[in-house]
């Protein structure tokens, strides 16, 4: 049953990567922006959740709930004041801006939070596990996986069942014609990045609860997210 165990654990690990990737793909899908600072934003969100936990003494899940609106606002502002100004036919400016942001975030966090490893503590939940008969799985990986499924399902519902999702798809197809429909592409982009930051908060919550983190680990998270995107894309091509 080793292979089954490996498969299940692998699948559950995939949950975290899927969370890393969801925000990245959301933004890319709507505005063709590859955010090189995505990993660092995840780390930033983890620190924000940690700060809320320490300041309020609340449980991490509630703390993430408090952090999410703030990070939505941050994402919205980042898009509105920075990324929107560099989006265009030339892919170089947005790449360089997000790369600069990555460097700035890493070093800013280093100054504010120091290079020490941190962790978001959740007590007994950290090591709890359930016996599913054939395999035993940790509660934490299971929760991560369930959250990833929930996030992707919710995103799907937003995309295909709401006016906002319609605006997302229309703007992604053709921003100029979308503006003829009364849609302001810039504010659609800002909402999308805000939403991506909410997903980033969820990813950060699990990252912070499941492993140590410090300001330098952002790029590696970006790379995991990217791998998940590629695997996802390959899977989709395979399915066609």
């Amino acid at each position: 049953m080793i292979w089954l165990d490996t498969l299940v654990q692998g699948l559950l690990l995939g949950g975290l990567y899927a969370l890393f990737a969801a925000g990245l793909s959301l933004v890319f899908g709507i505005m063709r922006l590859v955010n090189l600072a995505h990993g660092d934003l995840i780390v930033l969100a983890a620190f924000v959740v940690l700060v809320v936990v320490e300041a309020t003494g609340l449980n991490p899940f509630l703390s993430a709930l408090i952090a999410a609106p703030a990070l939505f606002a941050f994402g919205w502002a980042l898009q509105w004041f920075v990324f929107n100004r560099v989006l265009g036919k030339d892919i170089l400016p947005p790449l360089l801006v997000t790369f600069g942001l990555s460097i700035a975030l890493q070093n800013g966090m280093l100054e504010v939070f120091s290079a020490d490893s941190q962790r978001i503590r959740v007590g007994a939940l950290e090591s709890a596990s359930v016996d599913l008969g054939l395999v035993t799985v940790g509660i934490m990986p299971l929760l991560t996986f369930a959250s990833a499924v929930a996030v992707i399902f919710t995103l799907n519902q937003i995309f295909y069942r709401t006016a906002l999702g319609r605006a997302f798809r229309a703007t992604s197809d053709d921003p100029v014609t979308a503006s003829l429909m009364g849609i302001n592409p810039r504010s659609v982009f800002a909402v999308a990045t805000g939403l991506a930051m909410v997903i980033v908060t969820i990813a950060a919550l699990y990252l912070g609860m499941r492993s140590n983190f410090d300001p330098s680990i952002g790029p590696a998270r970006l790379i995991f997210a990217f791998e998940a995107v590629i695997i996802g894309a390959l899977a989709r091509f395979g399915a066609r």
């Binding site: 006016a163 319609r166 605006a167 798809r169 229309a170 992604s172 197809d173 053709d174 014609t177 979308a178 003829l180 429909m181 009364g182 849609i183």
Partner: peptide, 17 residues
């Protein structure tokens, strides 16, 4: 310039946004 990702009805709805 219809939106290819949208159905006929969604194209109409987006006009009515």
């Amino acid at each position: 310039k219809l939106f290819p990702s949208l159905s006929v009805e969604e194209n109409l709805l987006i006009g009515g946004q």
